[in-house]
Write a protein that binds this DNA or RNA. Structure first.
Length: 562
RNA sequence: GCGCCCAUAGUUAAAUGGAUAGAACACUAGCCUUCUAAGCUGGAUAUGCAGGUUCGAUUCCUGCUGGGCGCACCA
C-alpha cells in the first residue's frame, strides 16, 4: 500500500522535473508531513541549493492537480514534505483486500534447529528454531515453496562423551530404568554429557577411552548399540516435545549424521584421486588456504569422517531428494568460516551446488557471566526458560478467570521467549538476561498479545455484528498515526524476507502496538457516535488482523484473552 | 601470530550517508465509578579514541584501544 502512495508521489515529482531514482524518508514528526523527499542529490543536478530545489518543487506542484490523497506539499529546509489526507488514507488502508499470494514457485530449503542427540537443548537452539521457523513462514508468505529440514548429530565425539558418562554411573542400567519422563531423561543425558566432557579434557586416559567408544559407535559395536539406540530415542522424543512446545509445525525431512557419514567418507576418498582432497599427517584435508580460507580436516587420522565430510554427503542428499533452488543453513555465526570452506569444497564435489548454498548467520547467545558451554554444563536450558516464563505469567494472571488458562499461559510464555529472541537483529549477539527474556512489559511478546486481547474484548462487548464502511469526518492524530503504521506492513514483510531478518517484523509490530495503545488511551470505540464507531471498529479490526498476521510470521500464536 | 566480526544512555538494543540519534528495561512523578493498568503521560542520561572522505558520518575509509569468534584431526 505504501508502495502505491510512493509511486503516486514519484509521478508528481517527475512532473516537477525530478529525474532518476526517488528515495523517500519519513519526517521526524507528523507536523512536518508524512513523507519527505530530500533534495540534496537534486541540488547537484540543478546546480542550486537544496533549499531552493525544495522550494522550486513545491512551487511547481502547487499548480498541479494533486487529487485527494496528497493534501499539502511544503518545503521545509532542504526537504519537500508531503501531507496525506487522513480520510483518503483511511479509505486506502481499510478497504484493502487480502492480497493473493503470487506463486513464485522457487523451492527453498530451510535447514534449522539441528540439536544433537545426547546433548542438552539450550537457548542457542531456541534461536535457530525461532529464526528458522520465522524464515519458513516469511518465504511461504512470499509464495515460495519451502522444505523444512533439520540436521541432527547422532554420531560423533559428543555421543561418546555422553555414553562414557553413563557408563561411569554405578549400576547405570538400573539407574536409567528409573527415569520415566522425557524431561527427566533429557536432564540426565545433559548431566552425564557434561561429566564426560570435563573428564575428556582433564585426563589423557579418559580421552583414549572416549575415543575408543567413538570408534565403537561408528562401527555399531554390539556392546554399545543397545544403550546407544535407547538414549538416542530419548533425545529424539525430547526434541519432539520441545518442537511442539515452541510451535514448530513440522519438519519435512530429518537428516541424521548416522546416514551421512558413510557417503561422506566415500565422497572424500574419491576426491583424493581427483585432487580435491589431500592426505596430510595421516588425515585427509581440504586445502581452503588455496582460496584464502582455512585448511580443514575431512577424515581424521583414525579414518573417521568429520562434520566436514558428512556435510558433503548431506548436500548431495538434499539436492538429490528435493533439488531446491537454495538451501539456507540457519547456524550460529561462529561457523561462518567453516561454511565458507564447506561450500568451496562442494563446488568441486557437487558443482551444481554452487551459488545455491547459504549460511544464514545468527548471532551468539551469551550469558552475562560469559560463554555458554554444554561441555561444562554451564547452559540455560530451553525448557527451564519456558518453565520460568510460565511461572511468572501465572503469577500475573493469578486473579484472572479465563477459559483454558494453562494453555493461555503456555502460549504467552512462548510468545515472550520468541519475541525476546526475534526483536534483536538476526546477526547481532544477544546477551541473555533471564528477566529480560521473560519480560512481560514494554517491548515484549505479551505487550503484542495484549493488543489482540484488548481488541477482542471490545469486539465481544459490542452487540452489533455488521458495521458500515464509514470514515470519521475528523480523524484524530493518533488514528492517523495508526493508519500510517498499518500502511507499512506489506513493505516491512518484504524487507524482512529479502534481508532474511525477522527482527524487522518484530520491531514493526511493536511500533504498531504502541500506536494502537495511544489510540486506545484517547479514542473510545464503544459509545462513540455511529460514524465514528463504524470507523473505529474497522480500524481496530484491521489492527487485529495485522497483528495476528505479523505474529504468525514470527511463529507466535495469539490468545483470545489474557 | 593470521583472518573475520563487533563497539550507541546504568542495562538491553534501533536508525537505505540526511531534519531534533528513535525505543525498551530499571529509576522517578502522575493517570483506573469510563472498551483488560501486562496499559498511558511526564522526567535525567548515549554514538570507545584520533584522523580522513562528504554540503552532511552512528553509518564509508585509515590507525588506535577494548571485546568476541575462527584458524587440523569436536560438532
Amino acid at each position: 500500500m505504501l508502495e502505491q502512495i510512493k509511486i503516486e508521489i514519484e509521478r508528481l515529482l517527475k512532473k516537477a522535473g525530478v529525474t532518476g531514482l526517488v528515495n523517500f524518508t519519513i519526517p521526524p514528526n507528523p507536523e512536518m508531513g508524512d513523507l519527505a523527499f530530500a533534495c540534496f542529490g537534486l541540488a547537484k543536478e540543478w546546480k542550486k541549493s537544496p533549499l531552493d530545489c525544495a522550494r522550486e518543487i513545491v512551487e511547481k506542484l502547487k499548480n498541479l492537480e494533486t487529487g485527494g490523497l496528497i493534501e499539502k506539499i511544503e518545503a521545509i529546509g532542504p526537504y519537500a514534505n508531503f501531507y496525506l489526507n487522513a480520510q483518503e488514507l483511511a479509505k486506502i488502508v481499510l478497504s484493502e483486500k487480502k492480497q493473493k499470494i503470487i506463486k513464485k514457485k522457487e523451492k527453498i530449503m530451510v535447514e534449522f534447529a539441528h540439536p544433537n542427540t545426547h546433548k542438552p537443548v539450550h537457548i542457542g537452539h531456541l534461536r535457530t528454531m525461532t529464526t528458522g521457523e520465522s524464515m519458513v513462514r516469511l518465504f511461504e508468505n512470499q509464495g515460495h515453496r519451502v522444505v523444512r529440514a533439520n540436521y541432527q548429530g547422532d554420531v560423533g565425539m559428543h555421543i561418546a562423551k555422553c555414553l562414557w558418562g553413563i557408563l561411569q554411573v554405578p549400576n547405570y542400567q538400573t539407574e536409567i530404568s528409573k527415569l520415566k519422563t522425557t524431561s527427566e531423561r533429557a536432564k540426565f543425558l545433559g548431566v552425564v554429557y557434561a561429566n564426560g566432557g570435563k573428564a575428556f579434557e582433564s585426563s589423557e586416559q579418559v580421552k583414549k577411552e572416549i575415543e575408543a567408544l567413538n570408534a565403537k559407535i561408528y562401527s555399531k559395536d554390539k556392546s554399545l548399540v543397545g544403550l546407544y539406540k535407547k538414549t538416542r530415542k530419548w533425545s529424539l522424543d525430547y526434541f519432539d516435545y520441545i518442537y511442539k512446545r515452541v510451535g514448530i509445525k513440522k519438519f519435512d525431512r530429518l537428516y541424521f549424521e548416522s546416514e551421512t557419514f558413510e557417503l561422506g567418507k566415500k565422497i572424500v576418498i574419491e576426491g583424493i584421486k581427483s585432487g580435491i582432497f589431500k592426505k596430510s599427517e595421516g588425515a585427509v584435508i581440504f586445502e581452503g588456504s588455496k582460496y584464502g580460507l582455512h585448511d580443514r580436516v575431512f577424515i581424521n587420522s583414525k579414518g573417521l569422517p568429520t562434520y566436514e565430510a558428512k556435510d558433503q554427503a548431506l548436500a548431495r542428499m538434499q539436492f538429490k531428494e528435493y533439488n531446491p533452488a537454495r538451501i539456507l543453513h540457519v547456524v550460529a555465526k561462529e561457523q561462518t568460516e567453516y561454511f565458507k570452506v564447506i561450500f568451496k569444497a562442494l563446488e568441486f564435489t557437487l558443482p551444481e551446488s554452487k551459488g545455491r548454498e547459504e549460511h544464514l548467520v545468527y548471532g551468539w547467545v551469551s550469558l552475562k557471566e560469559g560463554k555458554m558451554s554444554s561441555r561444562t554444563g554451564n547452559v540455560v536450558l530451553a525448557e527451564w526458560l519456558l518453565d520460568e516464563a510460565e511461572k511468572k505469567i501465572a503469577e500475573v494472571m493469578l486473579a484472572r478467570k479465563i477459559k483454558d488458562k494453562d494453555k493461555v499461559i503456555a502460549k504467552i510464555a512462548v510468545a515472550a521467549v520468541k519475541y525476546f529472541i526475534l526483536k534483536t537483529g538476526t546477526e547481532n549477539d544477544i546477551v541473555f538476561d533471564v528477566n529480560e527474556a521473560i519480560s512481560l512489559t514494554g517491548s515484549s511478546g505479551p505487550y503484542l498479545l495484549y493488543i489482540v486481547a484488548r481488541i477482542n474484548s471490545i469486539l465481544k462487548k459490542s452487540k452489533i455484528s455488521n458495521f458500515k464502511f464509514q470514515i470519521s469526518n475528523s480523524v484524530e492524530p493518533v488514528e492517523k498515526k495508526l493508519l500510517l503504521e498499518l500502511l507499512k506492513f506489506e513493505e516491512t514483510i518484504k524487507i524482512a524476507t529479502d534481508s532474511e531478518d525477522p527482527s524487522q517484523i518484530a520491531r514493526y509490530l511493536f511500533d504498531l502496538a504502541q500506536a494502537f495503545n495511544n489510540f486506545y488511551q484517547t479514542c473510545p470505540v464503544l459509545g462513540a457516535e455511529e460514524t465514528v464507531l463504524n470507523f473505529r471498529f474497522q480500524l481496530i479490526k484491521k489492527v487485529k488482523e495485522t497483528m495476528e498476521k505479523g505474529l504468525d510470521l514470527l511463529g507466535i500464536e495469539t490468545v483470545e484473552e489474557m
